[in-house]
């Protein structure tokens, strides 16, 4: 749930999603759900010559399970807040 919340705070920011098939897509994060499925707008594929079929695609839905990494805009991530929230979630997890 914590990571889901982080992604929600990053909506309308530009992120780069790297898929497990090595395709990297940069775009504006429009929405995310609890499975970390991601909707991107105004997308641009990193290596267009290698993925010519993606050239006409302007927006996409990415299934969470095919994601390897998401590069986040560091200036919009409060690392101290993240660590505190992580400790709180870990403590809540330990109770049950």
């Amino acid at each position: 749930m914590l990571i889901f919340s982080v992604f929600k705070t990053l909506t309308d920011q530009t992120v780069t999603v790297e898929l497990k098939n090595d395709l990297s897509i940069t775009g504006v994060l429009k929405s995310v759900d609890q499975f970390l499925n991601i909707r991107l707008d105004s997308i641009k594929v990193l290596d267009e010559t290698r993925h010519p079929h993606m050239m006409a695609v302007k927006n996409c839905f990415i299934r969470g399970s095919v994601v390897r990494y998401v590069q986040l805009p560091a200036e919009h991530v409060d690392t101290q807040l993240l660590e505190d929230a992580t400790r709180r979630e870990a403590a809540a997890q330990a109770k049950r």
Partner: peptide, 22 residues
């Protein structure tokens, strides 16, 4: 997996071992 390694500063994780690193 995939013969990759990372070194980074850990800021968040969850029960799936999803991580956020800087």
């Amino acid at each position: 997996r995939g013969d990759r390694e990372l070194s980074g500063i850990l800021h968040a994780y969850d029960g799936h071992m999803n991580l956020i690193l800087s």
